[in-house]
């Protein structure tokens, strides 16, 4: 391989890694809720859409950027508490399948509500981040991707610090470990769940802004769930670190596959390559790279 071909490969990989950080961001929203409620929250994609749509509509109505951000965050908090009260609490102690079906329904309710409130047209979202590429040692990197990855990384750092150093974070980890014991110790599951859904809402907001700026704010935005699923399978549903590593692997590998394997099969690999990777992982390690091994005892 000559030097330029090598540089090109690095450039593709770096681009992939940067979008991988954004996959990870979406996946982390799932992980948070999975760890506390043991449920795959199918509505996470709708929450991303809801957040982005609320933000962009507020901005279009003349609300300044920071104000719109705060208002949307407040809306996501309200949504988190409402979901805890109306969906999770009545369904406490039901099977994970029941809860999953509830989040499936919830996804459509949230999408419908967003549509009802803000209308159905596609919105352009400009975060004021330049999309111009810049050069580092012969490699071109998109400014937007780099900034987006930086924001996502900051979000992950904030979450990690929150779970490490606060009492709510400690309670969250306790609940994730052993829900029954957490209840017996006197931790209030309702509050912790509401807090976690709020955190997931905040993650959805950041993901919604970054993806919305990239793809436009429209209803297909909720389909980024489909990008997060293989990341979750690869990293493990209950590991934040897993979501990050898997996001990076999937991001880089799908771009590299598109460029180097694509020509042999007529292209279009990027859409499904992540699923192929996830499938292989499922066969070898059903709980993912970092997931807890579930051992059934009889």
């Amino acid at each position: 391989m000559d030097w330029y071909a090598f540089l090109f490969a690095v450039e593709v990989a770096v681009g992939g890694l940067l979008s991988g950080v954004m996959y990870a961001l979406v996946a982390i929203g799932f992980v948070l809720i999975y760890k506390t409620s043991g449920v795959l929250n199918f509505a996470q994609g709708s929450m991303v859409l809801f957040a982005a749509l609320t933000f962009v509509s507020l901005v279009e109505h003349g609300v300044p950027f920071a104000g719109a951000l705060l208002l949307t965050l407040a809306a996501m908090t309200a949504l988190g508490f409402a979901i805890e009260r109306t969906v999770l609490r009545p369904l406490a102690n039901r099977s994970p399948m029941t809860l999953f079906m509830a989040t499936l329904g919830l996804a459509y309710v949230i999408e419908g509500a967003a549509q009802l409130i803000w209308g159905t047209q596609v919105h352009r979202l400009d975060l004021g981040i330049s999309n111009a590429p810049f050069e580092v040692g012969g490699i071109f990197i998109s400014t937007f991707d780099l900034v987006a990855a930086g924001i996502a990384a900051a979000m992950v750092a904030i979450l990690t610090a929150f779970f490490r150093f606060t009492r709510t974070g400690l309670s969250f980890r306790a609940v994730a470990d052993d829900t029954f014991a957490a209840m017996a110790v006197g931790l209030r599951l309702n509050r912790i769940q509401a807090a976690v859904w709020t955190a997931a809402g905040a993650v959805a907001l950041v993901a919604g802004l970054l993806w919305g700026a990239r793809l436009g704010v429209q209803f297909s935005l909720s389909l980024i769930v489909l990008k997060a699923l293989p990341v979750l399978v690869l990293g493990g549903f209950d590991s934040i670190l897993g979501a990050i590593v898997a996001g990076l692997i999937i991001g880089a590998s799908e771009k590299l596959a598109e460029v180097y394997l694509g020509p042999f099969v007529g292209g279009g690999i990027e859409g499904w390559f992540a699923y192929a990777v996830a499938l292989v992982v499922l066969l070898v390690r059903p709980s993912g790279l970092f997931g807890k091994k579930l051992v059934e005892r009889f």
């Binding site: 400690l170 980890r173 306790a174 470990d177 052993d178 029954f180 014991a181």
Partner: peptide, 11 residues
């Protein structure tokens, strides 16, 4: 104090 200790194992 529950039967079987029930500590939070990863804490």
């Amino acid at each position: 104090v529950l039967e079987g200790r029930r500590l939070f194992r990863s804490l």
